[in-house]
Deep mutational scan, measured.
Amino acid sequence: MSIQHFRVALIPFFAAFCLPVFAHPETLVKVKDAEDQLGARVGYIELDLNSGKILESFRPEERFPMMSTFKVLLCGAVLSRVDAGQEQLGRRIHYSQNDLVEYSPVTEKHLTDGMTVRELCSAAITMSDNTAANLLLTTIGGPKELTAFLHNMGDHVTRLDRWEPELNEAIPNDERDTTMPAAMATTLRKLLTGELLTLASRQQLIDWMEADKVAGPLLRSALPAGWFIADKSGAGERGSRGIIAALGPDGKPSRIVVIYTTGSQATMDERNRQIAEIGASLIKHW
């Protein structure tokens, strides 16, 4: 067993022997301040990774656009098919120029040779490549099948209805392509620590998230040296922004954090800054 596999296998073990965790309302004060600064709703939840206990939450059962955070769930569904012998990570998928959609920095470079399922998941999570996500959605049967996968996990809230990039439209009061912070946090925890996926697939999923290259201005910008984070960000229309993450000190994750916002007129930089400040408060009061 590799060191990384050992780390993920012992996530519940280490967490069980940690000192009790206590909620700190100071972080919620910052979440509410972010709402004021952005002029928009902000949803927040913080779960203990081992027990699933909610440590703090704000608007945990209000719907927010998922945006690209759905790509972690998508690759979880792909990995479940791999575990069941219905898919192979090494299978190569070929596609054409007509398949390319807006923001496809990886797939646009491989029109000639195609990409493997493993490479597509890596591109979808680490670079948020939209064509990679659409190609992977095709392998599982489309958005409705991802929703069905989530329902089978016990998540009857999260739903995907459309493809990239239309799913980022974020129309107010439109339930399409949305989740709730509580539902997303619980589902992410199941994917990373539950028995739904094999140990190898859980490790692969967290490795992809740990290698995320496009979430630097968010929670990662607030992390002290030595902290662990595996995350996936999302951005959408109407001032929408979000991030889902597993993080913790001492090089291992111990909490799940989900943050979503929508309806702001603020710039992307300002949305990023507010999420980073929430992260800084979380870490300060850990």
Score class of each variant (00 low, 15 high):
residue 96 S to F: 06
residue 197 L to E: 11
residue 267 T to A: 10
residue 68 S to Q: 14
residue 217 P to W: 06
residue 25 P to E: 00
residue 158 T to R: 11
residue 170 A to T: 00
residue 141 G to Y: 04
residue 96 S to N: 10
residue 204 Q to H: 10
residue 211 A to K: 15
residue 175 E to Y: 02
residue 56 E to T: 14
residue 168 N to V: 07
residue 71 K to S: 14
residue 80 S to Q: 08
residue 79 L to C: 01
residue 224 P to G: 04
residue 246 A to Q: 11
residue 84 A to P: 01
residue 172 P to V: 04
residue 198 T to N: 03
residue 100 L to H: 12
residue 127 M to C: 09
residue 226 G to D: 09
residue 165 P to D: 01
residue 27 T to L: 08
residue 140 I to K: 07
residue 52 G to V: 09
residue 49 L to S: 00
residue 145 E to S: 14
residue 267 T to F: 06
residue 79 L to I: 04
residue 125 I to Y: 04
residue 111 L to T: 07
residue 85 G to P: 07
residue 113 D to I: 04
residue 193 T to D: 06
residue 84 A to T: 03
residue 102 E to T: 01
residue 224 P to H: 07
residue 277 E to L: 08
residue 84 A to V: 02
residue 74 L to F: 01
residue 119 E to L: 07
residue 127 M to V: 08
residue 30 K to V: 15
residue 144 K to N: 04
residue 251 G to C: 14
residue 31 V to N: 13
residue 183 A to S: 01
residue 49 L to N: 01
residue 186 T to M: 09
residue 191 L to Y: 13
residue 24 H to K: 09
residue 265 Q to D: 10
residue 71 K to Y: 15
residue 151 H to R: 05
residue 177 D to W: 14
residue 179 T to F: 11
residue 48 D to M: 07
residue 241 R to F: 15
residue 203 Q to V: 05
residue 192 L to R: 11
residue 29 V to P: 12
residue 270 E to P: 15
residue 126 T to E: 13
residue 103 Y to P: 13
residue 242 G to S: 13
residue 240 S to W: 12
residue 63 R to F: 13
residue 263 G to N: 03
residue 95 Y to G: 12
residue 43 G to K: 10
residue 90 G to Q: 11
residue 284 K to R: 06
residue 224 P to Q: 02
residue 146 L to M: 05
residue 188 L to E: 14
residue 26 E to S: 09
residue 149 F to W: 11
residue 26 E to W: 09
residue 261 T to M: 13
residue 119 E to W: 05
residue 24 H to N: 09
residue 112 T to M: 06
residue 173 N to S: 10
residue 245 A to L: 13
residue 47 L to P: 01
residue 149 F to Y: 14
residue 279 G to D: 10
residue 140 I to A: 01
residue 61 E to Q: 05
residue 206 I to M: 05
residue 115 M to E: 06
residue 115 M to L: 08
residue 195 E to D: 03
residue 212 D to M: 09
residue 247 L to D: 05
residue 175 E to R: 06
residue 90 G to L: 09
residue 139 T to H: 11
residue 45 I to S: 10
residue 74 L to E: 00
residue 80 S to H: 09
residue 66 M to A: 04
residue 183 A to D: 15
residue 235 A to L: 14
residue 177 D to G: 00
residue 30 K to F: 15
residue 121 C to V: 01
residue 199 L to D: 14
residue 249 P to M: 03
residue 142 G to D: 01
residue 245 A to D: 12
residue 60 P to Q: 07
residue 154 G to M: 09
residue 174 D to N: 04
residue 203 Q to E: 04
residue 157 V to N: 06
residue 240 S to V: 12
residue 222 A to Y: 15
residue 224 P to L: 11
residue 196 L to A: 07
residue 191 L to M: 03
residue 117 V to Y: 07
residue 163 W to D: 01
residue 211 A to V: 10
residue 164 E to T: 09
residue 249 P to I: 09
residue 117 V to M: 11
residue 168 N to C: 09
residue 247 L to W: 07
residue 233 S to W: 13
residue 114 G to R: 12
residue 137 L to R: 02
residue 106 V to L: 11
residue 222 A to C: 09
residue 182 A to F: 05
residue 25 P to R: 00
residue 126 T to F: 02
residue 44 Y to C: 03
residue 24 H to I: 09
residue 167 L to T: 00
residue 241 R to Q: 14
residue 136 L to D: 02
residue 261 T to R: 13
residue 133 A to W: 02
residue 225 A to H: 09
residue 52 G to Q: 12
residue 258 V to A: 07
residue 106 V to S: 06
residue 26 E to N: 13
residue 137 L to A: 04
residue 39 G to M: 12
residue 221 S to R: 12
residue 264 S to P: 00
residue 201 S to N: 05
residue 124 A to H: 01
residue 152 N to G: 11
residue 230 A to V: 11
residue 283 I to M: 14
residue 196 L to Y: 07
residue 34 A to M: 01
residue 138 T to A: 12
